[in-house]
């Protein structure tokens, strides 16, 4: 059943105003959409990152629900501990509510340093939802390269230069890695597609077992786009097939969005300052390569979805 925005009014209470994320940040949009997709009480953990530091600058917290952070690479393990403690309390009759457990990590905390803890948690089958707000770099510390940084993007640790196109290789396909834990529900979504994201979040909360959602959450600051363009740029990622929307459940892949005519990747590249060096003469083969990879990846998903 589709969500209607008018019915959601008043539910945006889990993450409050007064947080200190940058103007136009995609992360709080993801948090808002995900947390409104359940009526159950939520206990949340965040990996170290933009979201964590900017929402809990002592003595202030923007979380209106139980929340804990301990480190960068361990959100998967922390959520395992939280959810298991809940089972222990339930067994003892110390709690009667059906609590949902939600972890947030950025792409640094999820693709890179936290991948092992996430994989462990998915494999063990705890009942939780892990949301990666993917902004394609270590944005909290100044746009360093992560495994999610796309090919050709300039970052502060793999910058564009006379002998560099920025990142030389394609990003890691984390959603499919999560999906390789066959007991898990895995999905990819974008803050630009709130209905898609909320439906997946609802499914994830209702799923009995581990669920993972990879959400494209633009960092306007380091993608070098105006702060007002967060939604537009995320939408463009979907419309160019750079960021396909799909989900995998019981080893079946569903493509949630197929553009009638996919927009060329140059539209996505041109819109962002982090790619601006690619527009210089001589870099056309790089753009061609990115386009090829985008099309090949989408084709791969199409083939998986039609099996």
């Amino acid at each position: 059943m589709a969500f209607l925005l008018k019915d959601l009014l008043g539910k945006d209470k889990i993450l409050t105003s007064g947080h200190r994320l940058c103007p136009g940040c995609g992360a709080p949009m993801a948090v808002k959409m995900v947390t409104m997709a359940t009526d159950n009480p939520l206990i949340i953990t965040s990996a170290t990152g933009c979201l964590e530091v900017s929402t809990t600058i002592y003595p202030f917290t923007a979380w209106d629900t139980p929340w804990v952070h301990s480190a960068f690479e361990n959100a998967g393990a922390t959520i395992s501990g939280l959810q298991t403690a809940f089972l222990a309390w339930k067994k003892k009759g110390k709690i009667d509510k059906e609590v949902k457990f939600l972890a947030f990590g950025g792409d640094g905390g999820t693709y890179d340093i936290g991948l092992q803890a996430l994989s462990g948690a998915l494999e063990r089958g705890h009942d939780f939802v892990y949301v990666c707000y993917d902004n394609q770099g270590y944005m909290n510390t100044g746009a360093q390269r992560s495994a999610s940084t796309p090919m050709g993007a300039s970052t502060t640790t793999e910058p564009a230069g006379k002998k560099s196109i920025g990142k030389r290789i394609q990003r890691k396909d984390l959603t499919m890695i999560a999906a390789a834990h066959h007991n898990a529900y895995a999905a990819q979504s974008s803050i630009s597609h709130w209905q898609d994201l909320m439906s997946k979040a609802k499914k994830a909360f209702e799923y009995e077992g581990p669920a993972f959602i990879n959400v494209l959450s633009p960092c306007v600051r380091f993608w070098r786009v105006p702060s007002s363009k967060t939604v537009e740029i995320a939408k463009l990622a979907v419309e160019t097939n750079f960021w396909p929307l799909f989900e995998i459940e019981n080893m079946k892949l569903t493509l949630n969005f197929k553009p009638k005519e996919r927009k060329p990747i140059i539209d996505w590249i041109k819109a962002q300052g982090r790619y601006k060096h690619l527009l210089q003469a001589g870099n056309e083969p790089v753009i061609d390569e990115i386009q090829k990879e985008v099309d090949a990846y989408f084709d791969y998903l199409v083939r998986l979805s039609s099996i």
Partner: peptide
């Protein structure tokens, strides 16, 4: 757990939950 880092992390999650 899949490592000691996760062992202590899960313990921290569990203990902070109140177990």
């Amino acid at each position: 757990v899949e490592s000691e880092h996760s062992a202590m992390s899960a313990c921290i999650g569990s203990a902070s939950a109140g177990a």
